[in-house]
Design a protein around this nucleic acid. Sequence first.
DNA 1: CGCAACTAGACGACTGGTCTAATAAAGGAT
DNA 2: ATCCTTTATTAGACCAGTCGTCTAGTTGCG
Lengths: 196, 196
Amino acid sequence: MNSEHIDVRQHILDTAKPIILGKGFSAVGLNEILTAANVPKGSFYHYFKSKEAFGEALLEHYFANYCERLDSIFNTQDATAGERMLAYWASWLETQSCDDRDGQCLTVKLAAEVSDLSESMRGSLLRGTEQLLARIALCLSEGERDGSLPHYANCEQTALQLYEMWLGATLLTKIRRDRSALEAAMQSTRFILKMN
Amino acid sequence: MNSEHIDVRQHILDTAKPIILGKGFSAVGLNEILTAANVPKGSFYHYFKSKEAFGEALLEHYFANYCERLDSIFNTQDATAGERMLAYWASWLETQSCDDRDGQCLTVKLAAEVSDLSESMRGSLLRGTEQLLARIALCLSEGERDGSLPHYANCEQTALQLYEMWLGATLLTKIRRDRSALEAAMQSTRFILKMN
DNA sequence: CGCAACTAGACGACTGGTCTAATAAAGGAT
DNA sequence: ATCCTTTATTAGACCAGTCGTCTAGTTGCG
């Protein structure tokens, strides 16, 4: 019934994610996804109104998950805001530098390709990245208060600077296929956070 | 004859660039490119061995052009290295924030999509970005010497930090469709260059 | 039983990249 | 100038694959 409904829908999304992380959005056909998920084609259009709507759902789900993970890092009270901040970027480095699909960043993979292709998917990306940025900025301001981070003229601006840098580093990692770009970002981050 | 040969080939590349800048690599068919260029389909495989080889040529040509433009900015002796540096990033901001296709950045558009798709295109991107980084790092070190920029522990590291930030900012610009991300990058850049 | 949710997969109309076979052009030799 | 060879260029066939539709069939709950 309803739980089954959600299961199949979710199963399609879960199966699709690593495939799309590998090949992108346009280059993957529904066939490939559906045979991998053992779901017949007829079902797909029962759960999603179109490939585009499916892509939007994929992103929406991705960001929901991501924000949860983010909160579990940022809401710990066992560490200073500075330590939490550093832990976040360290986890970014690890997840993006290893070859494990599924852990990789959908934002980096799809942003450029999809933003010009679909307004609704661009909307998902926009909302998702704004949420992310808000959480980073919040943690920075907490760091100002608990003294674990320096005082910034503008937390939003600093959060944006960091996020931009890590997005770019992840993009370069796709080109380089090594950790160098991410490690450089880590070093710069330590410096910006004055935690080196 | 031979000059004609190169002309047609070049004409295909020139026509393709804005189209691919808009839709990406996989989502664009040869048909669309070739009809736009008024070149029959059969001719394509006379000039390029495959779509992938064509993509590689596109990137190769793009970076060759880009490096020329870069050199024309960086080799001016009328300005300090710091001013040249700032002029470069300012031009990045302008070209990437306006809607004008053709001026936009192929690296940002294609890196994520293509790096996992084609080794040869990834190779082009790798060589191109390394050239770019080398030029930026060189300009930074000239700035150290002529006193227009601060002394950096490592010019390559700083160049990489800046480039990563601007790549990320450009990616975010595709999502946001406004100048905010690039302007934030500009502000951070001024700060890093100590030119604010 | 009835009605909804869901599955099955054939089908249509089309586009994808690739390749072979035919044509056009060019160059050289007589 | 004419013929022949050789290369440059093109037309279109080819088939696998695309997204999306649609009808039949199955399942399961009230």
